[in-house]
């Protein structure tokens, strides 16, 4: 049986990669994909702890996270389509109308 903390370390690596992508990339959709990566890393942590403590609540949380990620993807991609219609780019640096 594989120890739980190995899964936790894998999840930490994936989360870090996600953070790195969000901080360094400027393509809106890539940033969004990195957010999905972070969400998945957290899901892995939930499932790992669910097995560790025999708590099925961890799995149920993953269901809710998945549902919310689906909603988030739909709305987020719609925002990027709208942004693209107005600015013809999805570079997040270009969407600076609300910037002080």
């Amino acid at each position: 049986m594989i120890p739980t903390h190995w899964f936790l370390i894998l999840s930490a690596i994936l989360f870090t990669l996600g953070v790195c992508g969000v901080l360094t990339r400027k393509n809106g959709i890539t940033i969004f994909m990195c957010i999905e990566l972070m969400v998945n890393a957290v899901n892995l942590t939930f499932v790992a702890y669910a097995r560790q403590y025999h708590q099925i609540h961890g799995l149920l949380f993953v269901f809710f996270v998945m549902a919310i990620a689906a909603a988030e993807a739909a709305v987020g991609l719609a925002i990027f389509i709208s942004l693209f219609h107005h600015r013809h780019t999805i570079d997040v640096d270009e969407a600076n109308l609300m910037r002080w």
Partner: peptide
């Protein structure tokens, strides 16, 4: 994680 993480098997 390596320091304080769970190390015992379920």
């Amino acid at each position: 994680l390596a320091k304080f993480g769970v190390t015992k098997l379920p």
